[in-house]
Design a protein around this nucleic acid. Structure first.
Lengths: 403, 403
DNA sequence: TATAGTATTGAATCCGAGC
DNA sequence: CGCTCGGATTCAATACTAT
């Protein structure tokens, strides 16, 4: 939903405790008029000039109180700002949401291209993360271990003696005891996400536009599918686009007519939205899944978009003809995949067709496999089948042993 | 020089405008008693518990005013704090040093041993950088260009037309105009410096001890040799050690007797841990090739560095034990790879071992394969072998046909 | 001497016991 | 039910040891 109004009025129309998450990127108190030019030639802008800091803070305070009202008990708020006023803003947030509900000061870092000046180059912005209450919703996301970590050691169980000295745990026979499954490293409050590249900005052209990746990360940790997101200063609508992509519901408010129009365009025309994102480098992951890309990355190949039968061609030709590759999709049976690939391959005069299966095929032999089609199983699949075989055999042996 | 006293008294003994730089790392208002044990068995600590934030801020304010007095016109102050009170502290600094003399909010980021929590892991602290006046001393330090930067572009002169569109400058004959030599990228305000590791020799056991490297960076940008540095909360004396190593003069003040003793000891033998991580960067730790990473990316696994026998462990355990993965290296025969993996796997009590072969094995059966080792072939290898089989068969058929 | 592999550690965090 | 206190768990990065 889009509301074209000052967010103070806009939020007042919403009922108490109905919103799961609020992200806002209000004016930063830069005392400048923010402007930039869009690809359509329009000039977008808004004023960030104020009588005094006092009036700026009052403006924010009124609106933050309303946000507090509409936020659910399990909800969170993310306020994006920079060093211009972050200290005063945090005091406001402490007042309105309570010091105890301060969760994190998220640092968004980026490398930026800029001329040298006397002093350090500003390469970060701050996002304050407060919750409405201690029982806020939070999805812990685990990441990779640091390369300097010796994982094989960490996987061993350890114990400490009375003095606190740690050592590896061993069983009675002196063997090392392995620890339980590990989850990985929880996400830090410092986020290194590339600044929106200038070409992408050209496409939408709204000043202070944020990268979708940043919003997606916020949505991932603080909301689930179907949750309701509010962005009271939605600008060009990045939050709303992220919400739509991630199947969240959303309300965007902006006082600026151009902003609302821009949001409508971005949201109503998903294809254009996708192409915008494609430039930023987010969408390739949507036409091909990460798993598919990982498989294809092992072949020297060129990736084909929008073809149901072929995912890629090998760079090298065999028998003077191209080799087509297809990965079985999750919703395809092996037979369907074989059919799609052999049809598409025939049209292109391929010498070989490579089909990679990702799902168990049952025991039946595959039918209608052209003689030049090579069928491979994904590592996962092959691994799972072999483990299965092994366990089945082990069990049967045990049964025989008991007889 | 070392002064054993409350810094309020200590600074009062100093003359007006005599100090070039002040670094302070005051209590953070954590409301905890900070304690830790030194290698000599001593227990060091200080109290960071206060009646109220008010009294904490008053304490700081009195001392900051004195610091302002002794700082030279060209001098700077760096105040180290964390999210506990950074917002209030910055308002104090605005008051005492002036908003216009705010130079940077430096973010010190690090990775750290930790535990999972509901929320984001704190991985940064803040250093506020203010100057006494606009004509502060500052040494601009240039770093490397990021690898994604197009160097051609940097080396070409650019110009903007009336509309503000940038293009490469050309001379009258249409040749590209090369720019003057560039010096690199000026330093950002986000500093990634490893946290003082529990095992670092530099560690003296004083709580909240900071890495020497951090202080050296501050000294480098804000002072020259022979300048006078003041640290009014010198603790274990890291600032003083950095100053001594970099030939700056220094005054350290602390109320704590143990702290002063520790400083004396440390200064007589200043040690800086040669952080290999900092010296060589994170790359040498990453020992996997892109091809290997591509293969591993298809498993849900944690990557292991510095182990010849194991490249990764599956995140999921099978039969209540971990599963180790190894990829055959280009210079390993299958037999060697099998041997390395089975040895390493035995030590770690793995339920299964997965070996991925990347090179043709000849026709011989593999020997000494443990029963719980699963051998997979890389897609490339499998593909090439099957293509080979196919062609061989095709040829033989043709030969038969010709007979 | 260089490299592979092993042994440790701090302190933030959670969780459960005790009050 | 809300507190504190103690114990268990966590992981990055060093020092140390063996080869």
């Amino acid at each position: 939903m889009l509301i074209h109004d000052d967010c103070l009025n806009g939020i007042k129309t919403l009922a108490k405790e109905t919103v799961d998450m609020i992200y806002l990127d209000p004016p930063f108190f830069t005392q400048k008029h923010q402007m930039s030019r869009g690809s359509n030639g329009n000039v977008y802008g808004f004023s960030d000039v104020w009588d005094s800091r006092q009036s700026y803070l009052l403006f924010l305070k009124e609106r933050l109180s309303e946000m507090h009202r509409v936020l659910k008990d399990t909800g969170s708020i993310f306020l994006h700002c920079d060093t211009s006023s972050s200290h005063y803003i945090r005091i406001l947030l402490d007042e309105i949401f309570g010091e105890d509900n301060f969760r994190s000061e998220i640092i968004w870092t980026y490398k930026r291209w800029s001329n040298s000046k006397k002093g350090l180059l500003a390469g970060h912005q701050t996002i304050f993360f407060y919750s409405k209450s201690p029982n806020f919703k939070f999805n812990v996301i685990y990441g990779e271990y640091s390369p300097t970590t010796n994982l094989d050691q960490i996987l061993q169980e350890r114990e400490r003696n009375a003095v606190g000295k740690a050592s590896y745990k061993r069983d009675k026979s002196g063997n090392i005891v392995m620890a339980k499954e590990k989850r990985g490293v929880p996400m830090s409050d410092v986020w290194d996400i590339p600044f929106l590249n200038p070409k992408a900005r050209e496409r939408v052209g709204y000043p202070t536009q944020k990268p979708v990746e940043l919003l997606q990360r916020i949505l991932r940790i603080s909301t689930d599918e179907g949750d309701l997101i509010l962005d009271p200063f939605c600008g060009s609508g990045t939050t709303l686009v992220a919400a739509k992509l991630m199947l969240r519901n959303f309300i965007g408010i902006d006082v600026n007519t151009d902003a609302i129009k821009l949001c409508q365009e971005r949201l109503s025309n998903p294809i254009k939205t996708e192409s915008t994102l494609l430039k930023v480098g987010v969408i390739p992951y949507q036409t091909k899944t990460t798993a598919e890309l990982a498989i294809l990355s092992q072949f020297e190949c060129d990736i084909v978009q929008r073809n149901k039968g072929i995912d890629a061609f090998l760079k090298k030709h065999y028998l003077d003809a191209p080799v087509a590759i297809k990965i079985q999709k999750v919703n395809e049976t092996p037979e369907q995949a074989i059919r799609l690939l052999s049809d598409a391959g025939a049209k292109r005069n391929c010498s070989f067709l490579v089909l990679i299966l990702q799902k168990a095929t049952g025991t039946n032999e595959l039918k209608n496999v052209p003689s030049n089609m090579i069928i491979l199983k994904s590592y996962e699949l092959e691994f799972r089948q072999k483990v299965n075989d092994y366990i089945v055999e082990m069990c049967s042996q045990r049964v025989i042993g008991h007889m």
